[in-house]
Computed example of a mutant assay.
Amino acid sequence: MADSCCLCRNCQQIFDKMKRCVRCKSVYYCSRECQLKDWINHKDNCIEYMNSVEQIKDEDMNSRTNESALVDSKVCNKLNENSVHITDKTQATRHTSRINFEKAAKELKLKTQSKNIFEEEKIDEAVSLNSSDKFYYHNNETYYDVPTFHSDHPFFQITVKFFKQRHKIDINDSWTSDEILKYLSCQLEIPLEKIKIIHKGKLLTREIIRENIGPKSVLQLIGEKAANEQGLDKRDIDVMMKQLGVERNAAVNTLRQKGDLIDAIIEAANKN
């Protein structure tokens, strides 16, 4: 018997592929139509759930703020510009450094408050779904408005060369230049702002992409591949970016190397 938690919240049916609310991720729907019909009922629960999540994040951030990191005297000198206190000629006092997360906490809180995703006029953004949770990065932020390819709509195939590999990618005729960019960013895992598209020796700007490509077009893509953050806590990545002003790739790579947020911040600070 199917798990009741996977039933469509609106029609109470279950299909091979179910869609999930990308905001609260706690309810499922069989289609966008069912989700829109149920929004008036789900809205309050969605807001309440997201508020509880934010409360947990705030509590976690506060606990991180109160953590003390014991580091050796050399690192303390670089981070805090404090000299090691010598008690005698042969012994140095162990120095305790406290990393203040106030900057990261403040910026992340302001970011959350500035995104009122539950306004009625933004319902499409608030309830937009993607059955495969596809996303792309843009300016170190994650976005989920990747266009969905429909094989039953007119489309054409292009060839994309990236990192010495050739990719066959289907594009719907109706897509705009921006939608094509988002789709390529998602498919090839290149941050949107870092993609450069060359076609027939010509660098295509965002405004002219659609009018310059068609069936069997061959594109050369240039850009830095986004670092894989699988297995890492996204909150740690956000804290590092806000606290130190580093890009996502640098934050991900340092966290993966050190395995701990405190150690990663110290490592990144030393490099800077």
Rank of each mutant, 00 (worst) to 15 (best):
T90P: 02
E48H: 05
V239R: 01
N62R: 12
C30Q: 03
R64W: 09
K134W: 08
K122R: 15
Q13L: 11
L192E: 03
C186D: 14
Q35T: 05
Y183V: 01
I169Q: 05
G259K: 01
Q55R: 07
D60A: 12
S151I: 10
K161N: 15
I266E: 06
L188W: 00
D233I: 01
G231K: 01
K43Y: 03
D124H: 08
I169E: 06
E121R: 14
A69T: 14
S68R: 10
E179K: 10
I265G: 07
K194E: 15
G245M: 05
C186G: 09
V22Q: 14
L221F: 04
T142H: 06
T205E: 09
D133H: 04
M18A: 05
E67F: 11
N100L: 11
N228T: 02
S185L: 04
K196Q: 11
V27K: 02
D236P: 03
N82Q: 14
F15L: 13
V246E: 06
R9T: 09
N139R: 13
Q165L: 15
K17H: 09
N66T: 14
Q220V: 09
K271D: 11
S68C: 10
Q113G: 01
L79G: 03
S114D: 13
E120T: 11
T87A: 10
A227Q: 07
P154W: 07
D16P: 06
I99S: 03
I180L: 06
N139Y: 10
E59T: 14
I117K: 08
C24V: 00
E33S: 05
S31P: 02
I14R: 00
K78R: 12
K89Y: 09
F155R: 07
N82V: 09
